[in-house]
Design a protein around this nucleic acid. Structure first.
Lengths: 333, 333
DNA sequence: ATGAAAGCGCTAACAA
DNA sequence: TTGTTAGCGCTTTCAT
């Protein structure tokens, strides 16, 4: 490895290392001719700054650290890619890590904050534990929360417009499709997305004059298995619902399995809708009506905030970005 | 942020910073009692070493950098996760980046090598350009190639056992299922996986006494669209094949679309098989028979090699890991 | 077994 | 506009 250092450039260009440093970070007043000279020499030597040294002395890092939860969701690739692309475009690097069986999310965050590697953190935090909140609040580096409760006023956050998305979906089901008996399978009860979707489901039913029916609620955990399990319970009801709204597409897939095992047809006997628009959704038969979210936009927005915070380009007030959703009309209802 | 430094620990423990450094990296001869004392103080102060400083002075990095190609494949999440998990378990961090419209893979690799951030590189390189090979060979840090031509003797590599996997698949199709007219849609012609699969397809046909038929070859590029396009060409043949072996599942999905548009049935009128076993495969109708590869094992193996190279724990000879495959029997043939 | 001191590559006062 | 110098937190000789 061993690229040239500013020392060698200084020697070759007959200037001091300070001048080289200034010229290369082009923020100081350096005579144009010397700047040009230094840049030429730097290019000749194929100079790449030692990021470690630079970050170390500046006591800051140009690494955006993306922290993901344990489960590997389908959309992580897109999220990572969009964060990295935006970061790179602004001159930053992307580090990623996730909590897993060996490490809690709290530990992951704490480590990255304390050891100086991360210049900012983007964390996909489905639910904010008190300990995590304490750690996060005790740090100087910018934190951007993805999908975390937007109620938490203390952090910048980027989240999905769950409420509006679900409201639009349920409205469509009732007003256009004529469904009245709509069941819902929720995600985990400490998950913000799940909670918001559930709240919107209830509110929208009521706004349409449909009474909320506790029997029509299944409690899942965003996994396919839980979707299937809760769907079976719903299918066994004497007053069976006409449609099941699963809080995400994975659980909707579970519903498909259950419904097929019961020998029922979608959407003739019972409709199904989901949320997320994962890649698989359009290949199910029948294809799944769901709510699309631009993960790419989410990642880009988060990186943008993180980096502008690092550069102190943002106003004091915490940013609260809501990523809009869009219904994808298909064949399952 | 600002965790305690070794200086503060030294002061509190009444020893020199050198002793603290030694005690904490527990490789030098430090009296047991002082070591215990220092560790206690360190814990009290919630000390986390400044990784930037440490890496900087040691002129090495404990960051494993994973470099991905532009396209965001479905399996990236699993790959990233498994690399990170293995790295973390061995005390390393994971950085990821990908080539994209703003940056070629050559530039990405070069940057990470030169700026000192990466301690080793794991690169998913479908095809090795001469420039990339030059860059890679000119560096001191360990390089592990994923899926790159295993012919390249100069690098450690982890790749899929394409040849054996396809041989097993084609053998099954001929001997068990009785297919004879088997068409193939290839991936890009500079992609190693694609090439190996194609080679194995040809060889296995011949071993079974079936003459290779050039008309039965479509040249795709691993995208769904190319699969559809090439499938249409095959369906228009007067002597239509009985089955299409797509070089990956995405193209198999494209085949499904084409076949349905032609009003044909799978597998009654024509069979389809793929390679990869992506998540969606089992939800297609009919579900897709394909070849499964453990991405998780791939990532783990790559991280393992990268890190043991960093620690000089591996013999000179380049490691050549082949990840075994397994046929997933389903309904599409 | 421990301490003193140099130095990694770079930036940022302070001088000139 | 440029040079000199101190120092970031840590590791690592070289002494003791």
């Amino acid at each position: 490895m061993s690229t040239a250092t500013i020392k060698e450039i200084a020697r070759k260009a007959n200037v001091s290392i300070a001048t080289v440093s200034r010229a290369l970070s082009n923020d100081a007043k350096v005579k144009h001719s010397t700047k040009v000279l230094i840049e030429r020499v730097a290019k000749e030597l194929d100079y790449k700054p030692n990021i470690l040294a630079r970050n170390f002395v500046k006591k800051q890092s140009n690494i955006v650290c993306l922290i993901l939860p344990d489960i590997a969701d389908e959309f992580f690739s897109d999220l990572i890619k969009s964060v990295d692309e935006a970061s790179y475009a602004m001159g930053y690097f992307t580090m990623i890590t996730s909590s897993h069986k060996l490490r809690s999310i709290e530990e992951a965050v704490h480590t990255f904050i304390a050891n100086g590697l991360a210049g900012s953190i983007i964390a996909l935090i489905p639910s904010l534990s008190p300990e995590l909140e304490r750690i996060l609040k005790n740090t100087e580096i910018p934190i951007v929360l993805l999908g975390a409760s937007s109620v938490v006023e203390k952090f910048d956050s980027v989240s999905i417009a769950n409420y509006d998305g679900v409201a639009e979906l349920i409205d469509y089901l009732i007003k256009v499709k004529g469904y009245r008996k709509i069941a819902h399978i929720t995600g985990p009860m400490d998950n913000n997305d799940s909670l918001e979707r559930f709240g919107s489901y209830k509110d929208t039913l009521e706004k349409n004059g449909i009474e909320f029916n506790r029997d029509y609620i299944g409690q899942g955990d965003f996994t396919q298995e839980s979707g299937k399990r809760e769907c079976i319970k719903l299918l066994k009801l004497t007053d069976r619902p006409q449609l099941i709204f699963a809080s995400n597409d994975m659980m909707a897939i579970g519903c498909y399995q259950a419904i097929k095992e019961f020998g029922l047809r979608i959407p003739e006997d019972i409709g199904v809708v989901g949320f997320d628009n994962i890649f698989t959704s359009c290949f199910l038969s029948p294809s799944l009506t769901t709510v699309d979210v631009s993960i790419e936009l989410m990642g880009r927005s988060a990186a943008d905030i993180a980096i502008r915070r690092m550069r102190s380009e943002l106003p004091e007030a915490k940013q609260k970005i809501k990523i809009p959703t869009k219904i994808v009309f298909r064949e399952s209802c």
